[in-house]
Amino acid sequence: MDNVKILDASMTYTKEEGYVGRIQFEMTGQPNQYEMTIHSRKRTEWGYGLFFLHESGDEDQLLAVEDMLEEDDELFDYLVNAAEEKLDPKFK
């Protein structure tokens, strides 16, 4: 993904919470950096939240990035995979 730069990513697993990930990233042409949090019980279907990383920005730009995540499965999977790579191997 040439238009996305991963700044940081992590994922944890507990029996109680399931899989919880965090991906910090920026996109070419976007003035803000973003953080996406993800959650799944079985790593098959992911719920997510998208937020500005450091400070609030233009809500229309945040919504535009959210639209990209909804429409572009490759982009969404790329971000999820970045977090999954940080998961402790014993939980994979």
Rank of each mutant, 00 (worst) to 15 (best):
L50D: 00
T14R: 08
Y48W: 15
V4P: 00
F51R: 03
M11S: 03
A64P: 02
M27I: 06
K86C: 06
P89C: 02
I38E: 00
L7H: 01
K92Q: 08
F25S: 01
R22T: 11
L79Y: 00
K86N: 02
K86A: 01
S56H: 04
H39D: 05
M68C: 07
L79V: 05
Q61W: 04
E71T: 06
L87C: 02
L69I: 09
F76Q: 10
H54Q: 15
F25N: 01
Q33F: 07
F51E: 13
M27E: 13
T44R: 13
L7Y: 00
V65R: 00
A83S: 08
P31H: 07
M1F: 05
Y78E: 03
E26S: 10
G21R: 14
T12S: 14
A9K: 01
E59A: 12
E17V: 05
D73H: 11
L75V: 05
E17I: 08
V65T: 09
L87G: 02
K92F: 12
G49W: 13
E26L: 09
G57R: 02
N3I: 05
G47M: 06
E16F: 03
R41L: 10
R43K: 12
E70T: 05
I23M: 05
L63V: 10
Y13V: 02
F76H: 04
N3L: 09
K42R: 10
Q24E: 12
L75Y: 07
M11C: 11
T14A: 04
G57F: 09
G47E: 11
G47W: 04
D72Y: 10
S56C: 08
S10V: 04
M1R: 06
D67Y: 09
F51K: 05
L62E: 04
M36Q: 01
Q30A: 07
S10C: 03
E66W: 04
L87F: 01
G21L: 12
E59C: 09
W46R: 11
R41C: 04
A9R: 00
F52V: 07
K92S: 09
L69F: 01
E84A: 09
S56G: 12
